[in-house]
């Protein structure tokens, strides 16, 4: 490939990242507007009746049918009648559309980058952060497609937008080939698996964080501190949030496990030992243990619900910590300073 083409691809990638940033930022704003309008579509008495029935039949189809595509699919919001779509709803839909556009740019950025650098696009922190956020957005789009949890969009898009901005500004690195020590089969698999699963786990953690927000609200409602009619919430139900968190966690967890093992295989050929207690792998193990704890907690009486959600949020913190703090503050074998 000629140098010129490489240059162009590299520029295209940079441009696409800007596109993704713009898309996510606009999506974030739209979500914010949607939540700010707050008013859940106010239904006249008859419509409320219809909705109850719809909820009941959704129960028939799916128990507490979250994450399935039950009867209350795309048609459901129409329950409010064929009146014009409320403003919040319109902003919500716009947010999803813009997120899709941003995601397309995001994928393009990574692909172009890979071709420009002649290698898989996950060789430094900039690319790695783009991979993680890309996976998180992809997981979020799946959640949007399978549930109607759009109302938590602000909470999801906020960290994603921040991270993509950080990537595009602070962490940005020119496309370049890899050091030989990083140029290994297992490394490619390891880093891809780590970043993609971290993204999905990140979404899981955000869902748990929203769970805690909603849970706090419920408790305040129960204590009479909030009048649910006066300040209704659009956030998904606790049950739904719990399921989103759990489903994404169990979708990612086996692959996260695999990612750590792939890392160990890489270390075995590269560092002289499959496990060296390098800070980064230690924190990865800690993260893994936290998620094992989360899965246990969900199966242990007295630990379901709020405690489990807290554990999942701690898992999220641990992922972020590993990504930023360990990379930038603590250096180890992972500092990529091994040879040269």
């Amino acid at each position: 490939m000629s140098v010129a083409i490489q240059e162009n691809l590299s520029q295209l990638s940079d441009l696409a990242v800007e596109g993704a940033m713009a898309g996510y930022l606009v999506a974030l704003v739209c979500h914010a507007v949607e939540s700010a309008t707050r008013r859940a579509p106010r239904e006249p008495a008859t419509a409320a009746g219809t909705l109850t029935a719809a909820a009941a039949s959704s129960g028939a189809a799916g128990g507490v049918g979250v994450l399935t595509r039950p009867a209350y699919g795309p048609g459901a919001p129409v329950a409010g009648g064929s009146r014009r779509v409320p403003m919040g709803e319109r902003f919500g839909r716009a947010a999803v559309a813009v997120t899709l556009v941003g995601f397309a740019c995001h994928v393009l950025a990574l692909v172009a980058r890979g071709f420009a650098a002649h290698r898989p696009p996950w060789g430094n922190m900039y690319e790695f952060t783009l991979m993680i956020t890309g996976a998180a957005v992809a997981a979020w789009l799946v959640v949007l497609w399978r549930t109607r949890a759009r109302a938590m969009g602000v909470y999801v898009m906020m960290p994603i937008t921040v991270l993509v901005f950080l990537a595009g500004t602070v962490l940005y690195t020119q496309a370049a080939p890899l050091l030989p020590v990083l140029n290994s089969y297992w490394l490619v698999i390891h880093v891809a698996a780590v970043s993609l699963t971290s993204g999905v786990l990140m979404l899981s953690g955000v869902a748990s964080a929203v769970y805690l927000v909603r849970d706090r609200r419920e408790r305040r409602v129960a204590a009479g501190l909030i009048d649910p009619d006066e300040t209704p919430t659009r956030l998904p139900s606790l049950d739904k949030l719990d399921r989103i968190a759990y489903r994404s966690a169990i979708a990612a967890f086996p692959f996260y496990t695999f990612a750590i093992i792939a890392g160990a295989l890489w270390a075995e050929v590269s560092w002289g030992s499959y496990w060296s207690w390098d800070p980064k792998e230690t924190v990865a193990l800690v993260t893994w243990i936290i998620y094992a704890g989360y899965l246990h907690a969900r199966a242990t009486a007295g630990w379901r619900g709020r405690p489990a959600a807290w554990i999942s949020v701690v898992g999220l913190a641990s992922i972020i910590f590993n990504l930023f703090f360990v990379n930038m503050v603590i250096s180890g074998l992972h500092s990529y300073a091994g040879l040269n």
Binding site: A40, L51, A55, L235, D239, D242
Partner: peptide
């Protein structure tokens, strides 16, 4: 299950 968000389902969806 967790406390079910039944009414929420009606509102949110």
């Amino acid at each position: 299950t967790m406390p079910d968000g039944g009414p929420d389902k009606a509102k949110g969806e």
